[in-house]
Simulated scan of single mutants.
Amino acid sequence: MEGTGFAWLLALLALAALVIYYYNRLVFNRARVAEAWSGIDVQLKRRASLIPALVECVRQYMHYEQDALQAVVQERQRAVQLADSPLGQRAPVEAHLGTQLRQLFALVEDYPALKADGQFLDLQRTLTDVENHIQMARRYYNGAVRELNVRVESVPSNLVARAFAFAPADYFSLDDPRDAQSPNMEF
């Protein structure tokens, strides 16, 4: 009888150790997703802060393209307003902002003097760098989401996830495949 009690105690301790292990892995993965989203957020804010300078620089040359400039300004304002919103609300707006930037840079092709302007070239390089960082941050975020979601959905960690209300995270996905591409800013 005494041996049975000891066996039960060992079994409970082993079960507790497994629960603690899986709980800690889930917490780690959830923190990694939050950190990855923070990386995307930093780059998106960096891009948003560059857009007013870009618009002003382009405005000096593109007197006839006010609609394109206004579209970029409006999308930036929407993106800034949603800065603290959940990913599901923010991602489509950010993707549309990328589309507007691509359209603006396509119009720049008709303005040789602008393409040679030093300030514009600096902004172009910086925005290209930011867009590349956003793309890398998206990949890192989606990898972190994948790891969390696998833990939340696979046995036996899913039992711990359910018990402690861990939920799968949303991937950073884009509705339009063209939005996955960085704006072409090479002139």
Rank of each mutant, 00 (worst) to 15 (best):
Asp179Arg: 09
Ala95Arg: 14
Glu35Met: 13
Glu153Gly: 14
Gly143Ala: 13
Leu127Asn: 03
Val58Thr: 09
Glu56Phe: 03
Pro112Gly: 01
Gln119Glu: 01
Leu174Phe: 15
Ala68Ser: 11
Leu148Arg: 07
Ser182Gly: 06
Asp179Glu: 15
Phe164Arg: 12
Trp8Leu: 05
Ala91Trp: 00
Glu186Pro: 01
Leu174Tyr: 13
Phe187Leu: 07
Leu69Pro: 04
Gln74Pro: 03
Trp37Leu: 13
Leu10Cys: 04
Glu65Val: 00
His63Pro: 02
Gly143Cys: 15
Val80Glu: 00
Ala16Glu: 03
Leu104Val: 01
Glu35Arg: 15
Pro183Thr: 09
Ala106Tyr: 06
Val150Arg: 12
Ser154Val: 05
Ala79Leu: 05
Thr126Ala: 14
Leu18Met: 13
Val150Asp: 03
Thr4Met: 11
Gln77Arg: 15
Pro177Gln: 07
Gln100Leu: 06
Glu65Arg: 04
Arg125Thr: 12
Ala163Cys: 13
Pro183Leu: 12
Tyr140Arg: 15
Arg32Tyr: 04
Ala165Gln: 11
Met62Asn: 10
Leu87Lys: 08
Asn24Asp: 03
Met136Glu: 06
Ala116Ile: 03
Leu87Trp: 02
Ile134Met: 00
Pro177Glu: 09
Arg151Ser: 10
Glu75Thr: 05
Tyr111Val: 01
Val155Ala: 08
Arg162Leu: 14
Glu153Met: 14
Asn29Cys: 05
Arg59Trp: 01
Ser182Glu: 03
Ser85Phe: 00
Pro177Arg: 12
Leu104Glu: 01
Arg78Ala: 02
Pro92Gln: 08
Gly98Ile: 00
Val150Tyr: 11
Leu10Asn: 04
Tyr141Lys: 14
Val150Pro: 02
Gln60Ile: 04
Ala163Phe: 13
Leu87Val: 01
Asp122Gly: 09
Asp117Tyr: 06
Tyr21His: 15
Ala14Glu: 02
Leu104Gln: 07
Val27Trp: 15
Ser38Thr: 14
Ala83Ser: 15
Ile134Thr: 00
Asn158Leu: 14
Asp67Ile: 01
Leu174His: 11
Ala53Trp: 00
Glu109Pro: 03
Val145His: 08
Gly5Met: 15
Phe187Glu: 04
Arg25Asn: 11
Ala48Val: 00
Pro92Leu: 04
Glu153Ala: 14
Thr99Cys: 09
Val108Ser: 09
Trp8Gly: 01
Tyr140Gly: 11
Ala106Gln: 12
Val93Pro: 08
Asn29Trp: 07
Glu2His: 08
Val55Glu: 07
Leu10Glu: 00
Ala17Asp: 03
Glu186Gly: 14
Val27Gly: 09
Gln103Pro: 06
Phe172Gly: 11
Leu54Arg: 11
Leu44Phe: 01
Asp129Trp: 10
Gln89Met: 05
Pro177Val: 03
Asn149Tyr: 02
Thr126Lys: 13
Leu148Cys: 05
Tyr171Cys: 02
Leu101Ala: 07
Tyr171Thr: 03
